[in-house]
Design a protein around this nucleic acid. Structure first.
Lengths: 127, 127
DNA sequence: GCGTGATTACTCGGATACAAGATGTCCGAGTTTGAGCGG
DNA sequence: CCGCTCAAACTCGGACATCTTGTATCCGAGTAATCACGC
């Protein structure tokens, strides 16, 4: 039970993309160098963020990744859900029986964390 | 990023042990049958709970496991920490640099969940 | 100078390899209960 | 009826097997910008 490194890479990359907010997209090579991770691996992670609609990619020369949409709206939870998936952390009896009281407690605990992550936007860290 | 099945087994077993609260310890065979899991595997999980001081074991014939100490005090967090460990869910830059702002946000989010789990006792589910 | 083709610098996706952790099984060792047996 | 012994019923711990997932690499395909060349 741990957050994957991929989530860590995604968060740092998004923070960087929002911080510099360039006109031109940023190449994956440059992003990977910042964190000491291989470019091909990072691109796989960023593909998930693209599919989630958080960033967009530009092919070809001078291509790369760029924040898409309103960058003030991007929360931690958006990124985590994009990378880790949206399934709940705890599955009680295989079939997610909603009557299981343990399941209910775990879900509400998870919800407490998600509320926190949803209310914290990446832009909040910019000072 | 998911809670393991072991945590699920541990929670259900603890809930059962607290519910019936017998004089004599309950054998692992009986506990395992309730959940459809092999006795040997369940005993491995319960050993962690013993080490954490939540339950105690009795060897020999008519042996088994029994709640130790005050059963009103046992929280979800106690069990989860015993099974999953107490390391934080998110480790930013390998060395847990406390200055990493991302790390700080993730830790406080995790703390929100843990507070919830700490305040919910197993005994609360008994009605 | 201008269009056209080739080259270059990128991303994208699939296939693959590797490591670690979760899950589960097997077996031998130690421990306690209880039954059986002999006095 | 008492005490001793022995077998049965347990837990405990380590070693092992298997499966899934995370992590990472490699390569071919597609794409867009740029450069080179000929007109």
């Amino acid at each position: 039970m741990k957050y994957s490194k991929a989530t860590n890479y995604a968060l740092h990359t998004m923070l960087y993309l929002i911080a510099i907010a360039p006109e031109r997209p940023v190449g994956v090579q440059q992003l990977a160098d910042k964190q000491g991770v291989s470019p091909t691996y990072l691109s796989k992670i960023l593909t998930k963020l693209v599919k989630a609609g958080l960033i967009e990619s530009a092919s070809g020369a001078n291509g790369g990744y760029r924040v898409k949409g309103n960058k003030e709206d991007i929360s931690f939870l958006d990124i985590i859900h994009a990378v880790e998936g949206t399934t709940s952390l705890f599955e009680c009896c295989g079939s997610e029986d909603p009557r299981c009281v343990i399941q209910q407690v775990m879900l509400s605990a998870e919800d407490a964390m998600e509320q926190h992550l949803k209310n914290t936007k990446l832009i909040d860290l910019m000072k």
